[in-house]
Design a protein around this nucleic acid. Sequence first.
RNA 1: UGACCUAUGGUGUAAUUGGCAACACGUCUGAUUUUGGUUCAGAAGAGUCCAGGUUCGAGCCCUGGUAGGUCAACCA
Length: 566
Amino acid sequence: MSENVIDNDNVVKSNNFIHQIIEEEISTGKNNGRVHTRFPPEPNGYLHIGHAKSICLNFGTAQKYNGLTNLRFDDTNPSKEDTEYVDSIMEDVRWLGFDWDNRLYYASDYFDQLFGFAVKLIKEGKAYIDDQDAETISAQKGTPTRPGTESPYRNRTVEENLDLFMRMKAGEFNEGERVLRGKIDMTSPNMHMRDPILYRIMKTSHHRTGDKWCIYPMYDFAHGQCDYWEGITHSICTLEFEVHRPLYDWFIDQLKDSEYRPRQIEFSRLNLNYTVMSKRKLLELVKDGHVNGWDDPRMPTICGLRRRGYTPESVRNFAERVGVTKTDGVTDVALLEYSIREDLNKRAQRVMGVLNPLKMVITNYPEGQVEEMDAINNPEDETMGIRKVPFTRELYIEQDDFMENPPKKFFRLSPGIEVRLRYAYFVTCTNVIKDANGEIIEIHCTYDPASRGGNSPDGRKVKSTIHWVSATENIEAEVRLYDRLFSDEEPDGHKDVDFKEFMNKDSLQILPKCYIEPFVKDAKALDHFQFERLGYFNVDPDTTPEKLVFNRTVQLKDTWAKVQCK
RNA sequence: UGACCUAUGGUGUAAUUGGCAACACGUCUGAUUUUGGUUCAGAAGAGUCCAGGUUCGAGCCCUGGUAGGUCAACCA
């Protein structure tokens, strides 16, 4: 990678600013040189490519410094969370290739300790019960430019606070009637320090603790403490938590009883052009049926990318290439596409498939004859060997590979022109058959028997090699072509226009009847292929024994398409 | 009238902590090619947000601006 510096000892060093901080700390012996990170999703939705960046950062950083990474579910708000999400998150992290070993935690594991810590703060006069409603408290908080004012309940006695807190826990009050607040500083320039709410009443059963609790800690009151109790050294999160850091540190100060101290470090979240990344918007796309679920191959979710045909390696490489900084920017999806092409080019089984069939009849080829042609499985990897492809008198070729009146730089088949059928023969177009409307329905060719395998003994050249599939010896398949979901580079970047206005109406194109060479007949869900000259495709899980379904992961680079545009 | 953060080719990042602004994607040439793919060779493209200052020397340090982001859920 670009940030890799190969020094004289030939050691590859990747250094983002977080790694630099860590190396500095290791050299000064902070936390005894220990590195322990965590990936802390809230189980309220599916993970997306932005989370993948965070996962790679957290797990990758720990790996680099011989440290550990915990998986921790930040489940402090039972009204939004569900085990459905817990399961999908674990699956996605594993799929990416990371392992939390036996270190699976939940913020809810710490509810008792958190409660105890709250009691301690109350006893020390650092927290109090506020009886006001949300609106009043909010109004008293002031604004970023105007200081807040103190709650009339701020100076209750410890005894009264303790009594009220116990009664909150016992369920004596209704939701919204009481909250526990930290007693910090209502005039702080940082809004988060203005007596933040620590606990609120929620009479909702929790997906793990059931009805044991009716008061739940807020994010700020849970996250740093969980870090502390787990021995986390580097609490890596996204930029919007920057202003929470003083509060994070304040709680750590109240907790700390040794030299050990976790440190929150913020980095900028990933943005991709032509896509939206917020959970809320992705949920909207799913709920309103704009896509077919969280794992729709057009979605930037990890499960969507997986179904689309992305590999864990490609996603990890992408994350590495994007880098880690504090500057917010927008990454070009072209980089993501490059990452998957790069990976699949080396690994994908090649196969011939015709998406938009045009029948070709080789008039001088014996009827009923079937020849087995040798085809290379992957030119990038000789060990993958060769396979046989059946060749017959009637074939399908791609509609785009024939033009009756070709423009200047069109190298493919047209009347009177000779091309190579890949791994088979040279053929020359002799006739074009049209229907009553003048539509081309079939083309006739003659072949040169001497060119078997694709080379003529007389050494003559052709300008083009096209792919083909036997019209009789093939597998029919449905192929789903995907394009970007949005036609605008930044669909959620317009103040007055809803992001859905920019949805690309042609983001999904279904080709119900394509022809693929017989090799794919036993392909299993998620298997990758390169359809030669077209792109990378994988088998969609919708595939049944009766019907094979492919997704186009990404097209091959297409310089001809560029030429045409000019 | 606030606090905090950020600013380097079209895009994402780097610059050994003060020493000729580098890499990748993208773009454009050319070569090779039984994939208009891959690979290979090469090119264009920034003088580092602006203005001062320190210095032999500043993307890095100092001063002052400008622009953008974040913060006013009993969300995370």
